[in-house]
Design a protein around this nucleic acid. Structure first.
Length: 672
RNA sequence: GGGGUUGUAGCUCAGUCGGUUAGAGUGCCAGCCUGUCACGCUGGAAGUCGCGGGUUCGAGCCCCGUCAGCCCCGCCA
């Protein structure tokens, strides 16, 4: 098809803006054809641009015949420039913003055609692999257009917020050093320095601290970070952090800057949230919610019922009760009819989940229409049942599930089931009493988790490692524990949590070289290594580093929650799959051997020479060396008789065509 | 590294106990159609049942392996 040129055509309006006010005006519009509805001698066409949709119309009896013919050739997603007169519709469409008007076509330019799309833009539920392969088409869809628009607005709002608070935006290097702690790095080989590597930043942590030493006092950057770890629905190998750092602050000051920002961001999507947000210590969060990122929309708390089973015939529970706190029995109580009438099958799926989280099974007690049913009913005599009901505050139908084990084990199981069961129950929406337990899912429940442990014992490395990062300040009250009982030492670290997602984390940093040295020692980084890896930091701390602290927000996750979607890929223009591949570009991909050699990733051992004649010599085992020698001799002789331009070397190939040996006879060498 | 799940027409899916020529809707192509907006009507084309083995007289279906998407555990200072 012959295409028209854009020429000097200029749009006069955005498609979505046209209203009855514009009736009678001649307008020029640009966009994509969403769909043609050809009724014979009456043709409708919806034209889409970034701002909306408007209906075009042409009538056989009134329209120019050339225009009409051209219009009939238009298919979905053709790119058009049109001219027409805005008119009130005969039959209006209340579902469309521009549904009162239509454009009577007077001119049409087909700027480009479009092959039939590999998937329809309107449908939900198109396979995600297909969407990612044709991401540029996927991004035409309303939802992604909205999500990326929202992301842009959020980023702008964030920048403005910090600018209003006198923060300065500073860029830090993408090519930096690998650090010994933390996630796996993405490495970038250095061409200039053989055998040495840059690492892409997991975060600009050290740079932002150094900027405090430099006196910038309030720093912000919206920056890309990279971690080469396995992915999840809310994790990508490259992601965007809102990175901030402040001097002369306590953690309350950092939180005080973030909270109003969150309120503003929530406002963008019509949510009211009030600051200050609740603060919960790590310890309490684990005790009540079994998670360091609890979803507070669910009010159900974990309860300790260990004490009820000291005399129980149920060995599993009694053994825990007799373990003197090593192991405990903990429970979740979900009141209401919906919970009390859960089927055996549903309980089985919860049990499967519990097993996946490391539990042996899922003991339960359910009070339903027919009274008690329980996996350990035979150990629940009327007295024990009454005690259990009293302890859990059971006054009606409902479900209690139990976990037994160490705090870490039971927290993991119950922390997961808490929200999983609550979500399932609220999905049924049969039971009004649930609303008090699981607030409707549109709420935004922010909170801070504070007083994280500074260090945790790593079985794998047989040493303590930093929970947050090794620059986090110990809690001043716990400083003495650093060497005596490192596991008990709390950190001045805090996470921002929204609806069960960690959307930010930060800390007050160590700002003196001595404490930093102490911490390095505790986590097994010796003097020499500290010097090599972090010498610049230790130096900086020695030259008048101010007390400082900060935080990083996960922008992708934050926007994901603002957009109300459950997957981070929905708010990233060109995301990677769970296997960290880009289905559109195919990245990562192989590179030329020349590149590998240049980067010193491939030895030059296979280097070979240009030849005018190639003599194939079998390298299969069993070939008599004498014969091989003779063959080689013959080859050399033959080649030697050729003119130098034709014969410059001898190459030995194996049966697979791989070069085993090469020899220059004359002429210039050449790298393959 | 481990577990679960999905893979059939361009797309979304159905496909019985292993048994005839693998179907539907939609999209696409052609024709008709003056108020559609998920236009309608008629007709047509369209399949490496992810890939590779195996079992069987016979495999979309059963078995083994493998690849890819998604979810989870480990991992993610």
């Amino acid at each position: 098809m012959k295409l028209d040129r854009l020429g000097d055509f200029q749009r006069t309006h955005r498609n979505g803006d046209l209203r009855l006010d514009h009736v009678g005006q001649t307008v020029r519009l640009l966009g994509w054809c969403r769909r043609v509805r050809n009724l014979g001698s009456l043709i409708f066409l919806d034209l889409r641009d970034r701002w909306g949709l408007v209906q075009l119309v042409a009538r056989e009896e009134t329209a120019d015949s050339e225009l009409l013919a051209k219009l009939k050739s238009v298919r979905s997603e053709f790119v058009l420039a049109v001219e027409g007169v805005v008119a009130e519709r005969e039959s209006k469409n209340p579902n469309m913003a521009t549904g009162d008007v239509e454009i009577r076509l007077t001119g049409l330019r087909i700027l480009n055609t479009a092959a039939p799309l590999p998937f329809p833009l309107e449908d939900e539920g198109v396979g995600e692999d297909l969407r990612l392969t044709y991401r540029f088409l996927d991004l035409r869809r309303d939802e992604l257009q909205r999500n990326l628009q929202l992301r842009s607005e959020a980023a702008n709002l964030i920048r403005n917020h910090f600018r209003e608070h006198d923060f300065i935006e500073i860029e830090t290097p993408i090519l930096t050093n690998s650090t010994p702690e933390g996630a796996r790095d993405y490495l970038v080989p250095s061409r200039v320095h053989p055998g040495e590597f840059f690492a892409l930043p997991q975060s600009p942590q050290l740079f932002k601290q150094l900027l405090q030493v430099s006196g910038f006092e309030r720093y912000i950057q919206i920056c890309r970070c990279f971690r080469d770890e396995d992915l999840r629905a809310d994790r990508q190998p490259e992601f965007t952090q809102v990175d901030i750092e402040m001097s002369f602050v306590r953690q309350e000051d950092v939180q005080g800057v973030i909270e109003p920002l969150m309120a503003k961001l929530a406002m963008v999507v019509g949510k009211e949230v009030s600051a200050p947000f609740p603060r919960l210590s790590y310890r309490d969060a684990m005790e009540w919610y079994g998670s360091d990122k609890p979803d507070l929309r669910c009010g159900v708390k974990i309860q300790d019922v260990t004490g009820l089973f000291t005399q129980s015939g149920f060995n599993l529970f009694r053994a825990a009760a007799e373990s003197q706190g090593q192991r405990r029995v903990r429970a979740l109580w979900f009141p209401g009819e919906a919970a009390g009438s859960l089927s055996r099958k549903q309980l089985d799926t919860f049990q499967e989940q519990a097993k996946q989280m490391g539990a042996g099974g899922l003991p339960y007690a359910k009070w339903g229409k027919d009274g008690l049913s329980s996996s350990f009913k035979k150990f629940l005599d009327p007295g024990a049942e009454a005690a259990l009901k009293g302890h859990l505050c059971v006054n009606g139908e409902g479900l209690a599930v139990f976990a037994v084990g160490t705090d870490a084990q039971t927290s993991k199981v119950l922390g997961d089931l808490r929200t999983r069961i609550a979500t399932d129950l609220s999905a049924t929406e049969k039971d009004p009493t649930l609303s008090t337990l699981f607030h409707h899912k549109n709420a935004f429940a922010f909170l801070w988790i504070t007083d994280f442990p500074l260090l945790e014992w790593s079985e794998e490395s047989q040493r303590f490692i930093a929970c947050h990062h090794p620059f986090t300040s110990p809690h001043p009250d716990d400083l003495d524990l650093l060497e005596t009982d490192p596991g008990q030492c709390r950190a001045l670290a805090y996470d921002l949590v929204l609806n069960g997602f960690e959307i930010g984390g930060g800390s007050i940093r160590i700002h003196d070289a001595e404490t930093q040295g102490r911490l390095f020692r505790v986590i097994g980084i010796g003097e020499a290594e500290a010097r090599t890896k972090f010498g610049f930091l230790l130096d900086a701390l020695a030259f008048g580093a101010p007390p400082h602290g900060g935080l990083a927000l996960g922008l992708d996750r934050l926007v994901m929650l603002l957009a109300g979607v459950d997957n981070i890929r929905e708010v990233i223009a060109f995301p990677k799959t769970a296997q960290a591949r880009c289905l559109m570009t195919g990245a990562p991909g192989p590179v030329d051997e020349r590149q590998l050699r240049e980067l010193h990733l491939l030895q030059d051992a296979k280097q070979t020479y240009r030849v005018g004649a190639v003599f194939f010599e079998s390298a299969e085992d069993g070939l008599d060396p004498v014969i091989r020698g003779e063959l080689r001799g013959q080859a050399l002789q033959q080649i030697g008789q050729l003119t130098p331009r034709q014969a410059q070397g001898l190459v030995t190939l194996d049966p697979h065509g791989r070069i085993l040996d090469a020899q220059t006879l004359s002429g210039p060498t050449f790298e393959f």
